[in-house]
Design a protein around this nucleic acid. Sequence first.
DNA 1: AGGAAGATCTACT
DNA 2: GTAGATCTTCCTA
Length: 193
Amino acid sequence: MPNLIPKEFFLRSPLEVAPQLLGKILLRNLDGKIISGRIVETEAYLGPTDPAAHSYIGKTKRNASLFGEAGHLYVHTIHTQKCVDIVCQEVGTPTSVLIRALEPLEGGSLMKKHRNKEKIIDLTTGPGKLCQALAITRELDGIDATRTDSPVQLWDDGYELMDFVIGKRVGITKAAEQEYRFFLRANKFVSKK
DNA sequence: AGGAAGATCTACT
DNA sequence: GTAGATCTTCCTA
């Protein structure tokens, strides 16, 4: 029985939220057309105490939504790509969980079209790729993902979480030694082993 | 006003 | 394995 994940779920440390988001469903409503995938890889960013976090330097135009409500999105541009985070904790505490990879569920043909790729393994196996597959843009920055009328939602369908692995974060230059990355063991959609 | 950096991806060798 | 793409934001002068 699928349930929308409530805001309270995100009112905790990202170090708790990140592993618990594994196995949950990220759903995109594109004018009534549904694209969804199961979350198989996440990373935690701790804000003021984490030099790798975008909010480490304080509030700016780019990262303003990190300082907002839990359960809202933070979408940002990196090179030519986009990445999505889910904001955690109280307003003013800018921590978040980065969604790094999905296992595709619904809307495969739309994802192929958005990505211009045919192979399923090329659709959502990285933070930039999944944003492209789900048509997540900077225009969705700051939206509330805990509402059923939102274009992006997070669902729990009761999936039994198997073992997950903890490792170092990927692609960052500061505080890269911290083990804040979580991914499902033996899932081929994880971006990097 | 200009330049550098960035939680990435793809293509080519 | 490495280079190049290509955009926004922020820092410095």
